[in-house]
Amino acid sequence: MSTTTTDLHAHGGHDSHGEHHNPFHQHHFATMEQQFDTAKIGMWTFLVTEVLMFGGLFVGFGLSQAKYPQEFVDAHHHLQRWAGSLNTVVLLFSSWTMVMAVHAAQTSQKARMKMFLWITLLCACVFMGVKYYEYSHKFEEGLLPGMFYHSQPTDTIPGSHGYATFFAFYFMMTGLHGIHILIGMGLILWLLKNADNFNSEWYTPVDLFGLYWHIVDMIWIYLFPLYYLIS
């Protein structure tokens, strides 16, 4: 874990040793490798905060489910299982295209990297399209959170708070997840715009974005069975 002992005098950006100086090398790092490792530690630390933030919602969801088991089963029948399954497959596939894009960046295959990034973006669009379809369906039927919930004929315990709570968590968790997808789409566009800068020497943004995209996928991996596959 100890800091590398080479390149001690690489301060102020005036390397005396390097044959070439990478334009993305920041002055306060001795080496590019140190810079990359630091960025990676920072990214993983950020992902931990994401895990704990979504974790709070998962805990709330789980405890509410323990309180209203029957209502949650009833309510989840209003979610279309095929839509959830489709989105799961789309997101898993996009995770694969993303890791392929990272691999292409690592091996300086620019065209390949761009192609995989575009496919990832396309997958994200499909995901959001399905989400839009699902949400508009819920809005039409009045399957809404809290005081906006309209009782359904299928409610086996009419008047229970459990239904409104289910849809509150549904919209909060899939909504927060959807916001992460939207942010991810913006970041993919940024990566595509700067695609020419990435090569085997420096591909940190692609790598870090890959980590972000996988954690978004991972959250969906848990959301899917908890919401769509309760019974």
């Binding site: 390149d7 390097g18 990478n22 080496t31 590019m32 490798e33 990359f36 890791v99 392929m100 691999h103 690592q106 091996t107 085997s200 020497e201 790598d207």
Partner: peptide
């Protein structure tokens, strides 16, 4: 340095 760097993160693969 940069060569070793790119070698180092080359695992997995398609």
């Amino acid at each position: 340095m940069s060569h070793g760097h790119s070698e180092k993160h080359h695992h997995g693969g398609p």
